[in-house]
C-alpha cells in the first residue's frame, strides 16, 4: 500500500502531538517544537516503512525534540521554565500545568513515560515502541515517577 498523503497524518495527530509537547515543555516552547517535529516527520516520511506504526513513529520524533529542548535548557544559565510556570494559572487549562511542571522536573525516562501515558494516552506497549524500551520498563518508570510526585506532594 502506498503512503497516505502527509496532510492526513497531520490532521490525525496534530492535537495529540501538541498535547504531548505542551505537557513536556510548557506552552512557550511547545509551538516551536511542534513545527520542528512535523518538519522532521515530513522530511523522513517517504522513508517510513509502509507497515510502520505512524503514531509511535511520530511520537518518537516529538520525544526527541522534547529532549533537545530539555537539554538546551539545562545548559542555559537562567531557568526560563520557572518564570513561565508562575504564569501557568492564566493558561486555558487553569492551574493544571503546575502538575506537568513537576513532571518536567523528573528524570528523563520517568518524565517521558508519564507524559506519553497521561497527556496523550499511549499504552505502555506503544510507549515501549516510542522509547525503544520494554513494556515492563515503561510501567516501572511510570510507577517510580508517580511515587516521586506523591512524595513531593506529601513532603
Amino acid at each position: 500500500m502506498p503512503h497516505d498523503p502527509f496532510q492526513r497524518v497531520l490532521d490525525a495527530h496534530a492535537d495529540d502531538v501538541l498535547r504531548f509537547l505542551v505537557a513536556a515543555l510548557g506552552r512557550h516552547d511547545a509551538d516551536d517544537a511542534f513545527q520542528e517535529t512535523f518538519i522532521a516527520a515530513l522530511r523522513a516520511y517517504p522513508r517510513l516503512r509502509r507497515d510502520s506504526d505512524v503514531r509511535a513513529w511520530l511520537f518518537t520524533i516529538a520525544h526527541r525534540k522534547a529532549i533537545d529542548v530539555h537539554r538546551g535548557r539545562a545548559r542555559r544559565p537562567v531557568p526560563v521554565e520557572s518564570l513561565e510556570d508562575r504564569a501557568a494559572p492564566s493558561t486555558p487549562d487553569g492551574g493544571l500545568d503546575g502538575h506537568w511542571a513537576r513532571v518536567r522536573a523528573l528524570p528523563e525516562r520517568q518524565r517521558a513515560v508519564l507524559t506519553l501515558r497521561y497527556a496523550v494516552d499511549l499504552s505502555h506497549a506503544e510507549i515501549a515502541r516510542v522509547l525503544a524500551c520494554s513494556e515492563a520498563a515503561s510501567r516501572r518508570a511510570a510507577a517510580d515517577g508517580l511515587a516521586r510526585l506523591r512524595e513531593e506532594v506529601t513532603a
Binding site: 501538541l18 511542534f34 487549562d93
Partner: peptide, 15 residues
Amino acid sequence: MTELRPPVVDAAVLA
C-alpha cells in the same frame, strides 16, 4: 495521579 490530565489544546492554527 488523576491530576495529570491532558492539556487542553487546539492545534489547527499551528498545523
